[in-house]
Design a binder for these strands. Structure first.
Lengths: 305, 305
DNA sequence: AATTTGTTTTTTATATAAAAAGAGCAGCCA
DNA sequence: TGGCTGCTCTTTTTATATAAAAAACAAATT
């Protein structure tokens, strides 16, 4: 299945490439002729192992960007644009497969109940079947897929039922978290974090037109903070599903995006007020309103999409 | 397809072996010289594909147990004990790995926080690294493992925290299910199922000494029934964790097993009464009592274990 | 003595190959 | 006509091989 001269690459070296580009950034920051930090120091800075640092360093030396002589490493020249490695495959493989799979899942080639052909997907995405298998395994935990008795995979799709069940769970969890949150002592660090997030919301609102697109991240962080009042690892799982669904679904449903985000932003602020009031009933109500809106927004988005 | 001198076995043919033994059972039921059902019929009976049926049939013919001539298949002799394939590897590979892994996890070779060496486990269990990888992936969804940034696996273990969080979640879900359950119309099929299960509990109690061991299955089915009042696929996930944890943990903690099961059985019956009373407060209370006992039993079992 | 580098050993991630099991089709027999 | 068999093609499951990355170890330098 090799189109061009694709030699057999066994494992993506995305980490190396990312680190290489990061190293170039560091060199751009320093001056020409400047000495480089030691290998362990660089490893710590980049958060990678020394093995990878050494690979990056020899690549830099090969390109005549730095020179290495024992432990004396120095910069020969400033990095140019062309020195950077193309960001084509900088993404970890699993992320790439996940992205393509979600696109396929909500796209026209897949209808709910569709039986998945792993081999075919592998060819389509340009990866091996192992990668597909891992991805399918992951999504089956998210409830988007099902295994039949004969070992085959069937899509369940982003159906109305799925969303309803997901939100039921979400409400169950978040209502409880709200009760716990309002009862937190006033010196709990979560209150400070909440205030910080409130300010972020205000700033977002002030600059809404430009930052509109980044809302889903803010949304995720806000709900995560509320839910953290009841620490529970199983809850994190559900949050992960929510996050993935929201991320991908709204990426392909830009319709009414501005209105949707604007409304959610306002509701978040009311929700924060509710929490800060210390009144459980009021907090619960503001939470209920927001989750209700989120649910119907998602449902209508699925129905038209 | 040779099951004796097989040198490099690439994939376990557990399905074939299980089916082969099942076919022997069928032959033992029929008489000598009796005609065999058609291939599709056997496939349907055994719940496998015709390909596997054909493999079984030719193995039986090879062993001179049956004779095949076109579509005329007939039994030559009754199967002997020695005809059966050894039950060493009749278990699906994934199940075997899961079992061994859980045993390892709660055993002395593994303490919470331990970094897992996949290759080593593969050698220990006599399987390939792929099988281990699949297993680790599965258990990470159960919250028993964690992936570190460097891609390594670390055990979190069956700690007090884990159990506390698991039961928090369970209570959250089951309380809600109870509320919904008592509100079901009296002609809902769930009521009939509940009565059936109540009878099973009574029968269990009458024959407790002998059936004691099978209690965990009954327990699982009971809670599953209650929770089915609120159908939700994410909930099924949590139930799966509970089931696995209970199954393995109590398999190695036989201490006080009789008392533990006896008490749970009594509480289940009270719980069923509570549900049948139709009074939400009473139902909730009997549920609370039982879940509370279950939690403390599990916790104390971990502490002494 | 504490770090740094050079080298070797482990471990993980991925593609590939091959067995096992499933699905479908054409001809055939009752 | 309807179901059965023989055959072929797909799809899934698993083991293995190998590159990437991490970790460990040893020698060298400050």
């Amino acid at each position: 299945m090799s189109f061009q001269g694709a030699l057999p690459v066994m494992k993506t070296n995305a980490l190396f490439k990312r680190s290489y580009n990061q190293a170039l950034d560091m060199l751009a920051g320093a001056g020409e002729g400047a000495p480089l930090p030691s290998e362990p120091a660089m490893a710590a800075t980049l958060g990678i192992s020394r093995t990878t640092v050494r690979a990056v360093l020899s690549a830099l030396a090969m390109r005549q960007i730095i020179t290495i002589d024992g432990r004396a490493k120095s910069q020969l020249r400033l990095p140019k644009r062309s020195d950077y490695l193309a960001d084509a495959d900088l993404e970890p493989l699993a992320d790439m497969v996940e992205r393509k799979f979600m696109a396929w899942l909500v796209g026209p080639d897949c209808s709910p109940g569709h039986v998945i052909n792993g081999l075919d997907l592998a060819r389509q995405f340009g990866v091996s079947t192992s990668a597909i298998r891992d991805c399918l395994n992951k999504f089956s935990h998210f409830g988007l897929l099902e295994r039949q008795s004969n070992g085959r995979w069937r899509t369940l799709g982003l159906t109305v039922d799925f969303v309803a069940e997901l939100f039921d769970m979400r409400e169950l969890i978040e209502f409880r978290a709200v009760d716990r949150f309002v009862a937190l002592p006033k010196d709990d660090p979560l209150w400070a974090e909440l205030s910080l997030l409130e300010e972020e919301h205000q700033a977002f609102l002030a600059d809404f037109d430009r930052r509109n697109r980044e809302f889903s991240d803010l949304d995720h962080r806000f709900h995560k903070l509320v839910d953290s009042a009841v620490p529970n690892r199983f809850l994190g799982n559900i949050q992960g599903v929510m996050s993935v669904i929201f991320h991908y679904h709204y990426q392909w449903n830009k319709k009414d995006e501005v209105d949707r985000n604007h409304r959610a932003l306002a509701e978040h602020l009311a929700y924060i007020d509710g929490l800060k009031s210390g009144d459980p009933a009021r907090a619960r109500e503001s939470c209920r309103v927001h989750l209700h809106t989120a649910r119907s927004t998602m449902l209508s988005s699925i129905n038209v999409g």
